[in-house]
């Protein structure tokens, strides 16, 4: 075994929102801080830092995860989608449209994570029941909406079938 065990600084190369990024960083950081501070993807929010609120939800290799629970070096080789990669003003994802139509947003702080959880849910299960939708977003706390308009929005997309989002 070589003298030095492990590195304090690591190199990460990842696909983030369709762009490949390479960066060097101290290992003792979270994916959340890399996305927000280094990549300026501030649509990823921090609400607790301990996996409880879901505001930091992103899609990593096709699955929703809490970005605050992922040590930065784990991003190496991963494909990551944040809300910024889902759709923009000109090209809204059907879920983003549905959230607007159903007024499923109040303060909006939970919204990016909520939409990504909804996307991952519908990718896996295109026609969920309302209860399954509730289960699917149970890792995303919202203090404002009481969830009902969010469930309505997701259900409307499920019923309409997800059009080709990106």
């Amino acid at each position: 075994m070589e003298e030095k065990l492990g590195e304090e600084i690591v190199e990460i190369s990842a696909m983030v929102n369709g762009t490949s990024v390479v960066l060097r960083t101290p290992a003792n950081r979270t994916m959340l801080s890399i996305l927000r501070e280094d990549l300026h993807l501030t649509g990823v929010k921090e609400g607790c830092g301990i996996g409880e609120c879901g505001a930091c939800t992103v899609i990593m290799d096709g699955k929703v995860v809490n970005a605050c629970m992922v040590l930065a070096p784990k991003m190496d080789g991963a494909t990551i989608t944040t809300i910024e990669g889902l759709g923009d003003e000109e090209n809204l994802h059907p879920l983003q449209k549905a959230f607007i139509e159903h007024g499923a947003v109040q303060c909006g702080f939970c919204t990016p994570g909520m939409i990504l959880s909804a996307k991952a849910l519908l990718d896996e299960k295109p026609h969920p029941t309302r209860l399954e939708i509730r289960e699917g977003i149970s890792g995303n706390l919202c203090r404002c909406t009481g969830y009902q308009q969010i469930v309505d929005a997701i259900e409307s997309v499920a019923e309409g079938g997800m059009e080709e989002g990106r």
């Binding site: 290992a27 003792n28 950081r29 070096p73």
Partner: peptide, 25 residues
């Protein structure tokens, strides 16, 4: 919140992992 400083290793096999753990210990 800052996290404590540490070194990071990412072995690919059980053997390497155990060896690293052992050497550090």
């Amino acid at each position: 919140m800052s996290y404590p400083k540490f070194r990071y290793a990412v072995p690919k096999t059980v053997r390497d992992a155990v060896e690293i753990l052992h050497a550090a210990t």
